[in-house]
Nucleic acid binder design. Structure first.
Lengths: 187, 187
DNA sequence: GTCTATACTTCGATAGAC
DNA sequence: GTCTATCGAAGTATAGAC
């Protein structure tokens, strides 16, 4: 209940609003319980982070199994960007948070690159001189920034960029699914 | 002096550290002067934002005049990303800040796209089916995310992505400079 | 585990003298 | 413009009873 409250506060009012008093009030509990369960606010932030990582891991597992990997991966990075921004800002001045975020970011990226690499190799997809690892970074960067800007109310150039991305994605998925059918019919 | 102190605090310790007391202390002034000059903390954040916009405008003017526009544009988005992250987080729960950031972001992007559009047309550059506006978004997104991740200590996939970007950029600048010489020799 | 009580610090903001 | 003085609210965190 406390972590849910903390998460909601961070989303709605930013990391600065995540205080023992406000978190407790949102969960209809006494502020002292925050210290009983987490000892310090730093520990609460770490617990919140780890809960999120577990949730994302499960989500990513489904994404990487989908036949439309690129499409799903795009959507994956487009959700909860507000939380990501807050956590990134928090990481800039809470060393424990930074270490936790960095370690997991590397982990998630490696897993994504590995799956894309397998898909590209298995279906002989023409990735146009773009190695799987770069493709992952490209998708992450574009989807994240577009989502962040959309949250802010900035949309200039989004239509043109989305058109470009969709063209590439469609071609990629078409190759993947065509090969997939071929492989299947050979069974 | 107060704005400089505020800026520095935001960079080093995040927006939550930008309080009247701490800003004043850093500037060796009394906290009450913050309220004398800015009335509220919200006004201080807006003043800080506008000072930054002016500074960026001047910087961008130089960037857009450079013969290596793409290269300079990349570096332009790579500076002060920590501040950008803090301001974005701040914008998520300070409506006045959000409006100011959004309006200026659109403005900056339009200016960049216009210049790239002119360069591409003037030198007959092959932008590979990527409209100038999408090219601007691509550069912004990639450079920003790479810089943000580098600040966090995340570097997986950066080498592969940079190689890709540098290849494209080099080809772009080569076309631009070749044509530029041709045009110059016709004078 | 949850409560009351509390210590101490810091916050945004204002009043009024000089 | 800058100072002293001050308000009330909110911050992190602890002690100790139940």
């Amino acid at each position: 209940m406390l972590l849910d409250a903390a998460r909601q506060l961070m989303l709605e009012e930013g990391y600065a609003a995540v205080t023992s008093r406000r978190v407790a009030a949102k969960a209809r509990l006494k502020p002292q319980l925050v210290y009983y369960y987490f000892r310090t606010m730093d520990d609460l932030f770490l617990a919140l982070l780890r809960q999120n990582v577990d949730h994302y891991l499960e989500h990513q597992r489904q994404v990487l199994e989908s036949p439309q990997v690129l499409q799903k991966l795009w959507e994956f990075h487009t959700t909860e960007t507000r939380l990501v921004v807050e956590l990134t800002a928090l990481a800039n001045h809470r060393p424990a948070v930074r270490a936790e975020i960095a370690a997991n970011a590397e982990r998630f990226r490696s897993m994504q690159a590995e799956v894309l690499s397998r898909v590209i190799a298995a279906h002989g997809i023409d990735s146009k001189g773009c190695p799987p690892m770069a493709l992952v970074v490209l998708i992450t960067a574009l989807s994240r920034i577009l989502a962040m800007e959309r949250d802010l109310g900035v949309t200039t150039g989004h239509a043109e960029t989305l058109a470009l991305v969709e063209r590439y994605t469609a071609e990629f998925e078409r190759s993947a699914s065509t090969e997939r059918v071929k492989v299947a019919s050979h069974r």
